[in-house]
């Protein structure tokens, strides 16, 4: 029976791969639209939250199952305009390019304690209780935006992972930025990433633009026509068309998607960012 693409189930034998590419340029110092926190702060919170949720989801009675590899990279330049493209994980995982979700869960850089609102045992009221909040990445905002070099490095990393996992669900790359590339046209580099494939389908590249203003967000557009500017249209060109499974998931989450919708968000606020991260990963990782 011919296999539908993007149908490989995720298991120890067929691991998944999630790669996050984080813009750490100076403009990430600005507040995120609709928030009083800096974009880099909100981004670090969102990524830490994603890693926390994924480790929890992969955990079983005996520990965390080794079902996926995760990479988190940051890209920026220093004062002398030298590129800095490096893994963003801290603590024991510092410097590692791809790590298993088991390592992620077992080695947070630190565990902060914050009060969170949870349902009380009786009556359904919400109460504030101290909760462990593991941290793997901290906010960074410095220098320029060497996007092409970041995508080039990601291509090499993914090609190697695919050689080792030729029948896995294809890697999902989530790229989060707030501005234009400063080292060239990123579209050919994005195309090269999207052309990589496992036997289950081509690599998926999703792009999310963080807004400094409270402008209306564009989520999963199907055409470039209505997008507000050149940057938005560039990110559209860079982004993968959502496979059916992702399309269905996004629709179930309440998004009104047109055929050909792409894995792209523009003018994203914190809510959009978290929805975007969830869509990009939940749809693939149905771990029942």
């Amino acid at each position: 029976m011919p296999r539908a693409p993007y149908s490989q189930e995720i298991s120890r034998q067929h691991k998944a791969c999630f790669l996050f590419l984080l813009d750490q340029s100076f403009s990430m110092e600005e507040p995120l639209g609709g928030s009083d926190r800096r974009k880099c702060d909100e981004l670090a919170t969102a990524i830490n939250g994603w890693l926390q949720n994924m480790a929890i989801r992969a955990s079983g009675d005996e520990g965390i199952k080794d079902w996926m590899d995760v990479g988190v990279f940051g890209y920026r330049t220093d004062e002398a305009s030298n590129m800095i493209i490096e893994p963003a994980l801290l603590g024991e995982l510092a410097g590692k390019r791809l790590v298993s979700i088991t390592e992620i869960g077992n080695h947070p850089a630190r565990i902060d304690t914050r009060n969170q609102w949870v349902p009380a045992d009786e009556g359904g009221e919400m109460i504030s209780v101290p909760c462990d909040v593991p941290v793997w990445v901290d906010p960074v905002a410095q220098g320029g935006t060497p996007m092409c070099n970041m995508l080039y490095l990601a291509h090499g990393l993914l090609a190697e992972w695919i050689r080792q996992h030729p029948d896995s669900f294809p890697p999902i790359v989530v790229h989060i930025t707030d501005g234009e590339s400063q080292d060239g046209d990123p579209i050919p580099y994005a195309e090269a990433i999207r052309k990589l494939s496992t036997s289950d389908g081509q690599v998926l590249l999703f792009n999310c633009h963080l807004s400094s203003t409270a402008a209306a967000p564009f989520m999963f557009p199907a055409k470039p026509d209505g997008l507000p500017d050149r940057l938005a249209r560039m990110l559209f060109e860079m982004s993968s068309v959502l496979p059916d499974r992702f399309h269905r998931y996004a629709a179930e989450e309440g998004f009104e998607l047109q055929p050909g919708a792409r894995g792209m968000a523009f003018n994203a606020n914190m809510v959009c960012l978290i929805q975007f991260l969830n869509m990009g990963t939940q749809a693939a990782a149905i771990l029942r």
């Binding site: 480790a55 929890i56 955990s59 947070p108 593991p134």
Partner: peptide, 10 residues
């Protein structure tokens, strides 16, 4: 229980 267990047990 590790931190991920505690979070899930809720």
């Amino acid at each position: 229980l590790a931190w991920f267990h505690k979070a899930k047990l809720r």
